[in-house]
Design a protein around this nucleic acid. Structure first.
Lengths: 137, 137
DNA sequence: ACGCATCTGTTATACAATAACATCGATTGC
DNA sequence: GCAATCGATGTTATTGTATAACAGATGCGT
């Protein structure tokens, strides 16, 4: 029982993962904690430890600019692929885009600088389609 | 006196900006605070307020994945341009790269998703050239 | 002088993440 | 069986990051 099977999660990992998938949006570690108090989660560390594993398994991504976490929306996410997130500054909606071209371009840029690329964080801020049309008033 | 002139900074803004340019590397807000206690800075808020302005002026960038800040290395940085940072996980060295191609690609990706792009955070993690050759032992 | 905006200083507090330590349960090797 | 080990767990305490709320000070236009 290792990383590849979703069924292999421990109780706490399962709780945290379910909280994130149910949320359908990013949650901070403390928001997760609050939502899971009834399920026996009492301390931040229980959440952070579960998150560490979920990140390692590639089931969850961390949004650096929000200090929060989302369940990966790509069922068979390869974990190490470069992900691009769009973050709506109005409604908070987050979308996860997988784009090979960006990944390649970043790799080229790193190569130019003789930088050995291990992971990339790409977070775009702006307004989602819904919030744009809404503000066309 | 607004954003464009460097000479227009207030005392605290000047102190924080100088601390960052002297450091030649990223500093956390609290590291800045510690370095400026002798200069009369006593509370985190004094640093954060100065940083907010400096970010607004485009003189400073925030490294989301490090919770820290760097002085912009491009003298005439347009503030709103997309910046790419490489962060060495061994020595902590940070480089700031301006790349039009990446910016364009991200814009295209956002367009596809009907996302109105305002700002982009791109942070690459890995090993810098020096640390690669050093670890070839 | 007055109003207004901005920067300032201070205290207290919220939010994010980790340290240190004890325990429990399953597995492995003998 | 039994010790040894390893990973997950639970708990308390602490460090680090960022903001709230309030008060005072400064500069500027009218």
């Amino acid at each position: 029982m290792r990383s590849s099977e979703h069924g292999a999660l421990t109780k706490n990992q399962e709780l945290v993962y379910d909280a994130l998938t149910d949320a359908k949006g990013p949650l901070s570690a403390y928001a997760i904690l609050d939502g899971l108090r009834e399920h026996g989660i009492r301390a931040p560390l229980q959440v952070y430890r579960a998150l560490d594993k979920l990140l390692e398994f590639g089931l969850v991504h961390r949004l650096e600019s929000l200090n929060s976490f989302v369940a990966c929306s790509h069922p068979e996410c390869d974990s190490r692929e470069t992900m691009v997130f769009t973050i709506c500054e109005k409604c908070g909606k987050v979308s996860e885009l997988a784009d090979k071209a960006i990944a390649g371009q970043l790799q080229s840029l790193a190569d130019l600088d003789h930088f050995a690329l291990k992971a990339a964080t790409v977070e775009l801020r702006g307004f989602c389609q819904a919030c744009q049309t809404a503000s066309t008033q």
